[in-house]
């Protein structure tokens, strides 16, 4: 009887029992194939969103400058929204739960929705499917991976539009507020200027009347009420501001490019094969060692 063995003896034993390996390999590979067939496929693609160039924002820039000039306010570049603001909005959008709610709402109203999922399920699926990386200014790389085909194709064709729409809403909101605040400010100033003139006439008699005229205080007040812009600079500005039109904010804030939607199995087929080989070898070794141990016990019992 051999008292010592080496690895060659073990290899010989492995060779003798090779059919066990083939059986195990066939069995485990079959199990992996069944798993692969039953796993839902995933749909993935990459989307790049780049904030449009400054030219796209020219009308918006110009409008804001006009408002500031008319309102005689000091222009601080921080107060002017444009390309940088769009970039900041996109940066916060993908961390904002409301944005995902908005996408979910758009999906439910779209032709892509087959009515199988509730709005909360859609929202969760969309939130889980989008991964954003932002390494370069003005450029966002979105990696989308989901098991839901409709959501994948919906995001593929609509996400940039939704982003644009959201930015547009925020821009419009800001510009409208800027306009109304400026109007409010100018009208208070105009009222103050006119009131000051009126008080001057009433309190100081004719001091505020235009010179070389023979009109009465009542007549002057009527003229003042009819043509206040002639006497109040703020009123003129207010009139000019009211005449300005809010620029179109429905512009393309982003330029996008997408890869095609890839349909793949949730588990890499090569990984599955690799794992089946690994598990087969592992179980095979366990089997051969157990077999050898049993043989040794039998031999020793016999001895």
């Amino acid at each position: 009887m051999n008292k010592k063995r080496d690895l060659v003896d073990f290899l010989i034993l492995l060779e003798c029992k090779k059919n066990i390996f083939y059986t195990l390999f066939a069995l485990i590979t079959t199990i992996f194939i069944i798993i692969l067939l039953n796993l839902n496929p995933t749909y993935s693609f990459k989307k790049e969103l780049t904030v449009s160039s400054s030219n796209a924002f020219s009308d918006i820039y110009q409008y804001q400058r006009n408002v500031f000039t008319i309102a005689k306010a000091t222009i601080d570049t921080k107060d002017i929204i444009g390309r940088d603001s769009a970039d900041n909005i996109i940066m916060t959008l993908f961390n904002d739960g409301n944005f995902y709610k908005e996408i979910a709402k758009e999906f439910i109203d779209s032709k892509f929705n087959n009515g199988e999922l509730t709005s909360i399920q859609v929202e969760n699926l969309i939130t889980d499917s989008i991964q954003v990386s932002h390494n370069i200014k003005w450029r966002y790389v979105l990696e989308i991976e989901t098991e839901n085909e409709s959501i994948a194709y919906f995001i593929h064709s609509n996400l940039d539009e939704i982003v644009d729409k959201t930015i547009s809403k925020k821009f419009l909101n800001y510009i409208t507020k800027l306009r109304s605040n400026s109007i409010g400010l100018l009208s208070s100033l105009a009222d103050y200027q006119i009131e000051k003139i009126k008080l001057g006439i009433l309190d100081l008699s004719n001091n505020a009347k235009p010179s070389n005229t023979s009109i009465s205080t009542e007549q002057f007040l009527t003229i003042l009420n009819q043509t206040p812009h002639k006497y109040s600079s703020a009123y003129s500005s207010l009139k000019a501001l009211k005449r300005t039109e809010i620029p179109n904010t429905n512009i393309r804030y982003t330029v996008s490019s997408s890869s095609r939607v890839d349909k793949s199995s949730s588990m890499n087929i090569y990984l599955a094969f690799f794992l089946s080989v690994f598990f087969s070898i592992f179980l095979y070794l366990i089997y051969v060692l157990s077999y050898d141990l049993k043989q040794q016990i039998t031999i020793r019992k016999g001895a």
Binding site: N2, K3, K4, R5, L7, F10, D292, Q296
Partner: peptide, 8 residues
């Protein structure tokens, strides 16, 4: 390896 080569 140790157990195998030394016959358990």
């Amino acid at each position: 390896y140790f157990l195998y080569t030394r016959l358990y």
